[in-house]
Design a protein around this nucleic acid. Structure first.
Length: 638
RNA sequence: GCUGGCGUAGCUCAACAGGUAGAGCAGCUGAUUUGUAAUCAGCAGGUUGCGGGUUCGAGUCCCAUCGCCAGCUCCA
C-alpha cells in the first residue's frame, strides 16, 4: 500500500498508509490530545478529524483553547440547537446558524413564536443529544442530490442557499448528527459528546439574508465554551455589563435623562452630566489649540440649496430634518462641513496658508430610525469634536499622522485601548473612481508609513470618501466606533475650493474630515461604562464631599468648603443631620473620589481626614496638602 | 422602519383565572447630635404612558398611538 509522509505538530515526520483517517494519525501520535482537538489544519486548510489523508501533508491540531477551535465548537453547538428545536417544535424550518464573536445563533422560520421560556425545553433536548454522543458525519453530494434531499425535508431556505451557490460549485457538503441533516461547509467537532458548556441567551427577529425586504425570521442566540468555568465567567461579564449600563448609571449618578415628553433620542444633561461634558470639552479645546487647529462655529440650519450642492440632499436626505423660513427651505445640519467650506472660500488661499485646520464642537441632528436609539450611544442630536483639514495632496500623510497621534494620545488619557480599520467605498457614494482610489490609497499609505496595524472593512466608507475608523475597546472588551478620519476629494470639487500654488496657478486642496472622540454623547456613554461611573479625579463632576460628624462642625466645614472652591476643586458638602456611616454610604454610591470627614479632631488640628472611594482612610492631613493631592492627580490631564 | 417583549408612586418591584392599586428605598415632619457603607417614628405620595373600545365592572382583554428593552437593518 502506498505510504505518505505526514509532518506532525511537533515537526516529527511519520509515514502513514494513504487514506488513513486523521483521527487515527492523531491517536497514534498523542492520544491525550484528542480530548480537546475539535479539528485539524492540513496544509493550512481546516478539516474534520474524520478526514482521510491521501497526500503528503503537514498537520496541526485545532483545540478548543484557540479562537478557531472555539468557533468550530460553537458552530457544532448551533447544529445541536437546530436539531433540538426541530425535535421539540413542529413545522420549524432551519435557515442559517453560524458562530459569532461571542457565541452562535440559528435562524428559524416558525409560525409560532419562541419565548425565553422555551429555552429550557430546547436545552434539555440539547443535553440529551450531547449525552447520546452522536458523531458528526460529513458527506459530499451533488447539487441536485442536495436540493432533492432538503426539498424532501421541506427545508426551502436550504434549497435556496444551494441554488444560489456559484455555478462552478458542483458538490456541496452536508453534515448529520443523530438524524439531523444540515447543509454546511464544516468542519465540525467529532461528536456531540465533546460539548461541555452551553447556554441559550435570547431570541430576536432577523431578516432572511439580512435584507429588510425579506421575511423576518426568529433568531435564537446562545453561547458555548470548552469548560463550564469559562461559561460562568462569560455570564458573569454579562451581569457586570448590566451593572455598568450607562443608562442605569446615568440615572443613579444623576447625570442625564432622556424623556418621552421631550422626545426620543434627545439627551437632557443634568448638572453633573453637564459638568462632565464641560470638562471633556475644555480638554478638547485646549488640545486642539495645541495642535494648530483654529476654532470655528457655524449655524444650526443652512439653506437646502447648499445641501444640494454638497450632495447631502441626494445622499443623506433620509437622515436629515428640514424646516422652512419665509418660503425658504433649510436643512438642519447632520454634519458640520458646510460652514467650514464657506469659511475656506471667504478669501483667496495661498499654499502658504495650508494646512488649515478648522475645529468645531458642532452639534448635529440626524434622523435615526426609532429602533436604533440607545441611551447616549445612539441619539438624534449630538455634538461632535469635528474638524476639517484642508491641505495640499502632499500634506495628507503628515496630517493623517498628526491625527493618528492625537487619537492615540486621547485614548491614553481616557484609558482606552483601540483597534484600527480602513473602510472602503460603499455602494451608495459620490465622486469618481479615480478620486476614490486616490483617497483610499492616501489613507492606506499613511497607515503603512506609521506602521499601524489595521483591518480592511469593505464598503463601509462614508458616501463622500473612505475612512480610517478607530474602534476603542472598553473595560469589558467591547468595541466602540469613536474616532474616524475621512478623506474627501469630492467636497472641495463641488465647492470649487482652490489655493494659489508656488507656481502662481490655482490648485484644488484635499479635505480630511475627522473626529477624535466622535460624538461627545456616545463617548460619555462609553466612558461611564468603562469606569463603571467611578471617574478618575480629573473627570469627576464632584471631586470631594465634606462630611461633618455633627452640626457643631458646620462653621469649620464651611471654611474648608470655601478654601476648596477657591482652589478650583469641585467640592460638595453634606451637612445633614445624619450619622457619618449614612453619609459615607451615600457618597460611596455616588462614587465620589474623596470623602472628607470633619469632626472634633479635624476642627482641633485644622485638617481634614480624606477617605478614598476604595475605602482607604488617609488620616488627618492639612487642607493645603489635600488641595495639592487633588491637583497632582489632575495636572497631567488639564 | 421591521420582529418579539414590556410601560403600575421619583427609583426597584407586588396585585390569583377581569371585582374600584400595595411594599421597600427616596421625599416631608418630628425625635435623635451621631467618627468611616443604611438611627427611630409618623405623614404624604398613583385618573396604572396617552386615547379609544369590550364589559355591570379593566392595571389585567381588544384596537390605536407614544416610549422603553433585545435583536435585525442602519450608524458618530
Amino acid at each position: 500500500m502506498e505510504k505518505i509522509k505526514i509532518t506532525l505538530p511537533d515537526n516529527s515526520i511519520h509515514m502513514y498508509a494513504a487514506g488513513t483517517k486523521i483521527h487515527e494519525i492523531v491517536t497514534s501520535w498523542n492520544k491525550e490530545s484528542l480530548f480537546s482537538t475539535v479539528a485539524v489544519k492540513l496544509n493550512n486548510v481546516l478539516v474534520d478529524l474524520s478526514y482521510s489523508v491521501h497526500e503528503e501533508a503537514t498537520l496541526s491540531l485545532i483545540d478548543t483553547a484557540s479562537k478557531e477551535g472555539l468557533y468550530i465548537l460553537r458552530h457544532s453547538i448551533s447544529h445541536v440547537m437546530a436539531q433540538a428545536v426541530q425535535d421539540t417544535f413542529d413545522g420549524v424550518q432551519v435557515c442559517i446558524g453560524p458562530s459569532i464573536e461571542e457565541g452562535f445563533y440559528y435562524d428559524f422560520d416558525y409560525a409560532d413564536t419562541f419565548a425565553p421560556e422555551d429555552f429550557e425545553k430546547i436545552e434539555t433536548r440539547m443535553r440529551e443529544i450531547v449525552a447520546a454522543d452522536y458523531p458528526f458525519i460529513r458527506r459530499e453530494v451533488s447539487r441536485t442530490e442536495a436540493v432533492a434531499l432538503f426539498a424532501d425535508k421541506g427545508e426551502s431556505y436550504k434549497v435556496e442557499l444551494i441554488n444560489d451557490l456559484p455555478e462552478d460549485v458542483k458538490k456541496v457538503s452536508i453534515y448529520s448528527q443523530g438524524g439531523y441533516v444540515d447543509l454546511c461547509r464544516g468542519p465540525h467537532i467529532p461528536s456531540t459528546g465533546m460539548i461541555k458548556a452551553f447556554k441559550l441567551l435570547s431570541v430576536a427577529g432577523a431578516y432572511w439574508r439580512g435584507d429588510e425586504k425579506n421575511k423576518m425570521l426568529q433568531r435564537i442566540y446562545g453561547t458555548g465554551f470548552a469548560k463550564e468555568g469559562e461559561l460562568a465567567e462569560y455570564l458573569r461579564i454579562i451581569e457586570e455589563a448590566k451593572k455598568r449600563d450607562h443608562r442605569k448609571l446615568g440615572r443613579e449618578l444623576d447625570l442625564f435623562q432622556i424623556n418621552d415628553e421631550a422626545g426620543a433620542g434627545l439627551v437632557i444633561f443634568h448638572p453633573k452630566g453637564a459638568m462632565l461634558r464641560a470638562i471633556i470639552e475644555d480638554w478638547e479645546r485646549k488640545e486642539h489649540l495645541k495642535r494648530g487647529y483654529e476654532m470655528v462655529m457655524g449655524p444650526q440650519i443652512l439653506k437646502v440649496d447648499l445641501w444640494k450642492k454638497s450632495g447631502h440632499f441626494d445622499h443623506y436626505r433620509e437622515n436629515m430634518y428640514f424646516t422652512e423660513i419665509e418660503d425658504q427651505g433649510y436643512g438642519i445640519k447632520p454634519m458640520n462641513c458646510l460652514s467650514h467650506m464657506l469659511i475656506y472660500k471667504s478669501k483667496i488661499r495661498s499654499y502658504r496658508d495650508l494646512p488649515l485646520r478648522y475645529f468645531e464642537l458642532g452639534t448635529v441632528h440626524r434622523h435615526e430610525k426609532t429602533g436604533v436609539l440607545h441611551g447616549l450611544t445612539r441619539v438624534r442630536q449630538f455634538t461632535q469634536d469635528d474638524a476639517h483639514i484642508l491641505c495640499t495632496p502632499d500634506q495628507l500623510n503628515s496630517e493623517i499622522t498628526g491625527i493618528a497621534d492625537f487619537v492615540s494620545y486621547a485614548m491614553k488619557i481616557f484609558g482606552f485601548d483601540y483597534g484600527v480599520e480602513l473602510s472602503t467605498r460603499p455602494e451608495k457614494s459620490i465622486g469618481s473612481d479615480e478620486d476614490w482610489e486616490m483617497a483610499t490609497a492616501a489613507l492606506e499609505n499613511a497607515l503603512k508609513v506609521n506602521h499601524m496595524v489595521y483591518e480592511i472593512n469593505e464598503g463601509d466608507g462614508a458616501f463622500y470618501g473612505p475612512k480610517i475608523d478607530f474602534k476603542l475597546k472598553d473595560a469589558l472588551n467591547r468595541k466602540w466606533q469613536c474616532a474616524t478620519i475621512q478623506c474627501d476629494f469630492t467636497l472641495p470639487e463641488r465647492f470649487d475650493l482652490s489655493y494659489i500654488g508656488a507656481d502662481g496657478e490655482k490648485h484644488r486642496p484635499v479635505m480630511l474630515h475627522r473626529v477624535i472622540l466622535g460624538s461627545i454623547e456616545r463617548f460619555l456613554g462609553v466612558l461611564i461604562e468603562h469606569y463603571a461611573g467611578a471617574f478618575p479625579v480629573w473627570l469627576s463632576p464632584v471631586q470631594a464631599i465634606l462630611l461633618i460628624v455633627t452640626d457643631r462642625h458646620i462653621p469649620f466645614g464651611e471654611s474648608v468648603y470655601t478654601q476648596l472652591c477657591d482652589a478650583g476643586i469641585r467640592a460638595e458638602k453634606d451637612f445633614r443631620n445624619e450619622k457619618l456611616g449614612f453619609k459615607i454610604r451615600e457618597a460611596q454610591l455616588q462614587k465620589i473620589p474623596y470623602m472628607l470627614v470633619i469632626g472634633d479632631r479635624e476642627v482641633e488640628s485644622k485638617c481634614v481626614s480624606p477617605r478614598k472611594r476604595n475605602g482607604k482612610d488617609l488620616g488627618g492631613i492639612g487642607i493645603d496638602k489635600f488641595i495639592e493631592l487633588v491637583r497632582g492627580e489632575c495636572e497631567h490631564y488639564q
